[in-house]
Design a binder for these strands. Sequence first.
DNA 1: CCTATTGTTGGACTGTTGTCAAACTTTCAA
DNA 2: TTGAAAGTTTGACAACAGTCCAACAATAGG
Lengths: 102, 102
Amino acid sequence: MRVFPQPATEDIQLTEVLHALSDPARLEVVTRLAVERELTCRGVGDEIGLHKSTMSHHYRVLRESGVVSSRQEGRQKFMTLRRDDLDARFPGLLDSILGATL
Amino acid sequence: MRVFPQPATEDIQLTEVLHALSDPARLEVVTRLAVERELTCRGVGDEIGLHKSTMSHHYRVLRESGVVSSRQEGRQKFMTLRRDDLDARFPGLLDSILGATL
DNA sequence: CCTATTGTTGGACTGTTGTCAAACTTTCAA
DNA sequence: TTGAAAGTTTGACAACAGTCCAACAATAGG
């Protein structure tokens, strides 16, 4: 599998992050990532009833906006929240959004 | 002019707020509202070079998502940020977004 | 080597969004 | 009453988004 680009911390754009999180499926993924630390593509997709290619699309949006990063391990790809980067770039933003979803 | 509906505080949806703020023009309007308290439709539109009907559309999105409310005075319509409502519903969210744009 | 698993890609379809222009409504002021 | 000003609405259009399916690529395990 290829390596995927993700923006440097200082290149993360606020409007892109807000857009990424404005989709219910992606927001759901992010709230789970906040608790479970790592997720595979399939994991959440099955639970919320979305096709794997749809999930792949959502993960891509999350990655390209700078919200998550991915780590490859065998066939699986694990996604993690870029907590520190987001906190550094937009202090308090992620916490307030996560707090609002609980 | 007609009266426009706006959601009650408890009906404000996080995804809709995030979507409303994910557009650069609307985010610009909101950051100005945070400083100037009140704005008319025309005011900002001219400065950022958008047609008045486009601005009307953006104000509508902001209003229906619960981000702003409007007050009619003569021919003009003044928009204000629903700061208290947003803070009550999603504590810290607006501040972190406004802080990120400065 | 063959096969099942995991995810990506491209195509297709549907629906939404941002934008402007033109027509309309309401209101204020000569 | 006539006209100008402020917004709204509708129509049009291009661009983008979310979804699924089918085909593909890469990897792990018999």
